[in-house]
């Protein structure tokens, strides 16, 4: 083995290998640090933009996904610089992704339904809603579930997927809401008189709006009486007070004026007479 300036060839080769390794590890560290720095700046940039245009929960979720994706990508590139073949890792990752995806399907469907609902803003906390047959006030919305306080004061947590798939009525979205009151009067009664009595009651109520104008009319000729309908517009927040007041006030005013409100009467005819014996 010859000498080159005091160092053996083995020394030079091993020295260059060490240098190459050192360079590789330096690149690895630099890539990781760079990915962390980029992720940090992207996070800051997205925070500045997304919080102003999207709801907080959606913004947080998007920022987290982007942040960790950049770091993950950085690690993958860093590992690649070491000369490790990533093909196997990618294939294994793909299979793992499928399995995890299947296992987390319910969670993911809730997550995406939540992101959609928060973005769409069809409901917001404080709204009075009917979701399928559940009626209440929205307390809180997160990316995974929606919390509702039912009208009888019970806290209910509904997965967002269910909210997304259900028929949803939002009673608070618009400032006013129409209520309908139906009453039946006997055929012998004067419908015009009944209508004027109902109109007086409706006009006297402070929450029944002048505009849009209330509508009171004969809606049907029923099996036991003449059906009269009163359609009134009220502030959405006061619907319950109006429902509670008007139903009884209309009934009372009609009764006080001598207008008969018929009730369902059924005559039962027996084909064969029955014998009633004294015991």
């Amino acid at each position: 083995m010859g000498l080159l300036g005091g160092a053996t060839i083995v020394d030079i080769i091993s020295g260059s290998e060490t240098l190459a390794e050192f360079r590789q590890y330096t690149i690895l560290i630099l890539v990781i640090v760079a990915s962390l720095v980029i992720a940090h700046f992207v996070k800051k940039f997205l925070s500045r933009i997304l919080y102003t245009i999207l709801p907080r929960q959606i913004s947080e979720t998007i920022i987290k996904i982007v942040y960790y994706s950049i770091i993950f990508l950085g690690f993958m590139i860093a590992i690649g610089t070491l000369g490790i073949d990533l093909t196997t890792l990618v294939i294994a990752g793909g299979f793992a992704g499928i399995i995890v995806g299947l296992a987390l399907q319910p969670l993911l469907s809730n997550l995406f339904a939540g992101i959609y609902l928060l973005g769409e803003k069809s409901i917001v906390p404080g709204d009075h809603v009917l979701i399928d047959d559940i009626e209440g006030i929205i307390l809180e919305m997160s990316v995974m579930s929606t919390k509702i306080k039912t009208l009888d004061g019970v806290l209910l947590r509904i997965p967002n997927n269910k909210v997304f798939e259900s028929k949803l009525y939002n009673y608070s979205r618009f400032p006013v809401r129409r209520l309908e009151f139906s009453v039946s009067i006997a055929y012998k009664e004067d419908a015009d008189k009944a209508i004027s009595i109902i109109r007086r009651i409706v006009d006297d109520h402070p929450f029944v709006m002048l505009e849009p104008e209330p509508e009171i009319f004969v809606s049907a000729l029923g099996s036991s009486g003449v059906e009269i309908v009163a359609r009134v517009w009220v502030p959405s927040s006061e619907w319950y007070a109006v429902v509670r007041d008007l139903t009884w006030k209309i009934k009372k005013a009609l009764s006080d004026s001598g207008v008969e409100i018929p009730f369902m009467q059924v005559d039962v005819w027996l084909r064969t007479p029955i014998e009633i014996k004294r015991l």
Partner: peptide
């Protein structure tokens, strides 16, 4: 005696006002 409200504007985006 009479305290009434009116809707100024549309039913979707109007304003409830004292009449």
């Amino acid at each position: 005696e009479k305290y009434k409200l009116v809707l100024y504007g549309t039913e979707q985006a109007g304003i409830i006002a004292r009449y």
